[in-house]
Nucleic acid binder design. Structure first.
Length: 827
DNA sequence: GGGCTTAGGAAA
DNA sequence: TTCCTAAGCCCT
């Protein structure tokens, strides 16, 4: 039997499957999706089996056997292997990069080179130098030694060690290892025949009271139990249990334990809530689709507070009832305890939770629950879309408009597209939920787009829930023109109206959420005497102040220096380290309202594990009056006593040079406004802005998605932007500008040539090259080209041809081309 | 001529 | 990506 293997070398020349022979001993262990160690050139590499075949016509001379299998069960399913192939075409990434993205980081290969001692034939130890003798002595004293540690120990003898290997004194062994080992715990097992227990209890001498107690325990609870638990439960020492084990009555074994991050927590079981007629209708539609195994994509537009989560929960329940599995994606930021709680409460231990706050080990263990079929539901952030289920029935993407679903590093996939691709394979349904659907998604529900629908890009069906549960009204949104405030001499960051409203809530003991967008409020370091701003010496960007570490660092390359006390340019001491902006608001709140209790949530206060949760719990318990934060306070939170929401600088996103800035502004304001008045108490919202006439702000204040969408669609169509055209962003980077310019021109002209050949089937426009908005990162300059296209285009082959031409022209020049298909950030 | 550095190519 | 080899270069 032969296997085709994708190896762990992300390079163009190796971006294809290599053939290997499957040794007979491995036949039963290897399947499509297996992770294997294979000899590749002079080394051993990790790879994934993507195909198995009998291949009698193979060129046997060239083919090496697979070296080792790395898992008992393949970490990937055949479907995921196929998906990897699709991703590599769709997002222009190496196939191995796509496959690696699907498994937890803990399984990323770690390569270790070991040496062990050997006796070379016919050689004399006398030929060795004294140091070499010593090295051999050292190696002989143990089974194997990791080469790196040996080289570290004998730092200056690298050449001599090499000689030992060449002459056969040392044998080199290459190992592929996981980064992660499973956690084991000693576990006590009762005997097979429980009836024996009674006899043994009699048999024990009277003074062995403790041992009797242990046996009694198993009579009550015949399940295996962790040794540590047993000891603390019965207040005994290990020797007691060991004594029983020595008699052969009990068995003590090492068993893999799960690091369950939620183990210590109990979740209140919840049962399905009665649905409103609106919810009922939506749920019915989804349930029908599940039953019919339709590959339907639903766009569920529900206003904030319309009860989308309950619809998700019941849809998942019907999916489980059909014996199929479900994936729920939530934006990382809103992967709040609340959401997890509701899922755990409803589905208990049938749920695995995957998010980036888990440690490597915890994440791995949650993932293993899926592989072992212990769970049927996964709730997680973007990468949870790759959960290795084999009978997927439903994929839910909550807040589908969120940008976190697009991965910014290779593979630059969008979870929404991956979801549709996986659903196509499984005959599963997809539900995209949002109060403010992305223009891309809503477009696909329109008649115009329905006509252009293909198998690859199906049309979506719109479901809507326009009212809040229990008929609660949407909060009243007041737009405050900050220009007027300034005219009237108010230079504070709070308008008079907002000030009054805060005062009133404090008096009534109700709660307040304040949103301050990061952008627009600098985190940079500036000298107020001469205007000096601290820049990164390697990137075209200012350094960011980090309060926690008292350092200023570059966000892109990690360069850091100590906090400045004087200006390096003019020596002035008036150098200001602007915090996240929220700090300033906090200070000002304290001045304006003495005694006010503020919880500030931003990168500085939430980096620590679990801190996010801690702050939110405090706020929920009304231990604070104000929750102040950046975008993260806008999403998905639900607090009954919040009756006032203030967006302090609504237009800071609007002013960004990005064609999606209006959409982002509208989404953010709608989201944050939705935090108010979700329960009995009515809510009120203040939006402070310098551009109160902008349609995104006006529409958001009226909770009017439809009119925003219409207006925005016109703008997009006018400028050939998505969703009417699709984009590809090509970024070239190199240390030298002239070479970049030349290759940029070459790339653009090649792309233009290729676009000519499209004729009538499609339209394609090539823009650039121009310097990227961040023109230098890590001492490399950056130029970009943009492709706008629509219609039937094999964009992948166009991109491939263009990049091949470029490769040949600048061979070995360290020029890198990065391709972002459907980019969300145009940097 | 040997040893060192570097560029280019191969990897099943 | 990593490693090997061949080619180029310097020094003895």
């Amino acid at each position: 039997m032969y296997a085709k293997v994708i190896v762990d070398v992300p390079a163009k020349q190796t971006n294809r499957a290599f053939d290997y022979r499957v040794p007979d001993s491995m036949k039963d262990w290897i399947a499509v999706g297996s992770r294997v160690g294979v000899p590749f050139g002079p080394r051993t590499l990790q790879g994934f089996v993507v195909e198995l075949h009998e291949g009698s016509e193979m060129d046997a001379g060239k083919i090496k056997p697979i070296g080792q299998t790395l898992d008992l069960t393949p970490p990937l399913t055949p479907e995921l292997v196929k998906l990897g192939r699709w991703m590599s075409r769709t997002y222009m990434c190496h196939e191995i990069t796509a496959l690696q993205a699907m498994i937890p980081g803990a399984l990323k290969a770690k390569y270790e080179r070991h040496v062990c001692a050997r006796e070379p034939q016919g050689q004399q130890h006398a030929l060795l130098l004294p140091v070499q003798q010593e090295i051999m002595q050292f190696v002989r004293s143990r089974e194997t030694v990791e080469l790196d540690s040996l080289l570290a120990r004998y730092a200056s003898e690298g050449a001599l060690i090499r000689q030992l290997i060449v002459e056969g004194y040392l044998e080199e062994i290459q190992l592929v290892k996981d980064r992660m080992t499973t956690k084991k715990a000693l576990t006590v097992f009762p005997p097979e025949q429980l009836e024996q227990l009674d006899g043994w209890i009699e048999e024990l001498p009277a003074r062995a009271a403790k041992q009797k107690e242990v046996l009694e325990h198993f009579k009550q609870q015949p399940d295996p139990i962790k040794l540590t638990e047993l000891l603390s439960e019965l207040n005994i020492s290990a020797s007691t249990v060991k004594g029983l084990a020595e008699r052969g009555w009990l068995r003590i074994e090492e068993v893999e334990v799960q690091r369950d991050p939620y183990a210590s927590r109990s979740f209140k079981p919840t049962s399905p809530l009665p649905l409103t007629p609106e919810q009922q209708q939506v749920y019915g539609r989804i349930r029908d689709s599940l039953h019919a195994r339709q590959r339907h994509v639903f766009l569920l537009q529900g206003v904030t507070g319309s009860g989308k989560t309950e619809v998700y929960l019941q849809s998942i329940q019907s999916c489980l009832d059909l014996g199929r599995e479900a994936i729920v994606l939530v934006p990382e930021i809103s992967l709040t305890p609340q959401m997890v709680e509701r899922f755990k409460g409803r589905f208990g231990n049938r749920v695995a939770v995957l998010h980036s706050r888990l440690s490597h080990g915890e994440r791995y263990d949650e993932w293993r629950k899926i592989v072992r079929r212990d769970v049927q539901v996964v709730i997680g952030a973007r990468s949870a879309i790759f959960a290795p289920f084999t009978n997927l029935g439903l994929i839910i993407i909550d807040e589908e408009h969120e940008t976190t679903y697009k991965q910014e590093e290779s593979p630059k996939y969008h979870a929404r597209d991956v979801a549709v691709a996986r659903a196509r394979y499984h005959g599963a349904s997809v539900v995209l939920g949002s109060a403010t659907p992305s223009l891309e998604s809503i477009f696909r529900t329109l008649p115009q787009a329905r006509q252009q629908a293909t198998e690859q890009r199906p049309a979506f069906e719109l479901l809507s829930m326009p009212s809040r549960v229990e008929g609660r009204p949407l909060p009243k949104v007041n737009i405050v023109d900050m220009r007027e405030e300034l005219k009237n001499g108010n230079r504070s960051m709070f308008s008079r109206d907002l000030y009054k409203a805060i005062e009133e809530r404090l008096h009534k003991k109700e709660q307040i959420v304040l949103l301050l967008n990061r952008r627009g409020y600098a985190t940079f370091v500036m000298c107020r005497t001469c205007g000096y701003v601290a820049d990164c010496p390697h990137c075209d960007i200012s350094l960011t102040y980090h309060q926690s570490s008292k350092a200023i660092r570059c966000h892109y390359c990690g360069y850091a220096e100590r906090e400045l006390s004087v200006c390096p340019d003019c020596g002035s001491e008036h150098i200001r380290h602007f915090g996240t902006g929220t700090q300033r608001v906090e200070e000002e709140l304290g001045k304006l309202f003495p005694g006010i209790r503020v919880i500030r949530m931003d990168v500085d206060t939430t980096t620590e594990k679990g801190s996010h949760e801690k702050w939110l719990t405090m706020f929920r318990n009304r231990q604070a009056d104000v929750l102040l934060g950046t975008q993260m306070v806008a999403k998905g939170l639900d607090f009954p006593y919040v009756t006032l929401v203030g967006a302090l600088a609504a237009d800071s996103v609007l002013n960004l040079p990005d064609f999606r800035s209006a959409e982002r502004t509208f989404q953010l304001l709608t989201q944050v406004a939705g935090r108010a008045g979700r329960h009995q108490l009515p809510g009120e919202v203040f939006v402070q802005t310098y551009t109160p006439e902008h349609y995104s702000i006006i529409s958001a204040s009226r909770h009017d998605y439809a009119s925003f969408m219409q207006k925005e669609m016109q703008m997009r169509q006018l400028h050939n932007y998505p969703p009417f055209h699709r984009l590809v962003l090509l970024t070239l980077s190199h240390e030298q500008v002239p070479l970049l310019l030349r290759s940029g021109e070459m790339l653009a002209s090649r792309l233009k040539e290729l676009s000519q050949s499209l004729a009538g089937r499609a339209e394609m426009e090539v823009l650039g090259p121009v310097a990227s908005p961040i023109s230098r990162i890590k001492d490399r300059y950056r130029f970009q080209c943009m492709i706008k296209y629509r219609g039937e285009t094999d964009i992948a082959s166009i991109l491939e041809q263009a990049s091949t031409v470029l490769d040949e022209a600048v061979k070995g020049q360290k020029l890198t081309l990065s391709i972002d298909v459907d980019p969300l950030l145009l940097m």
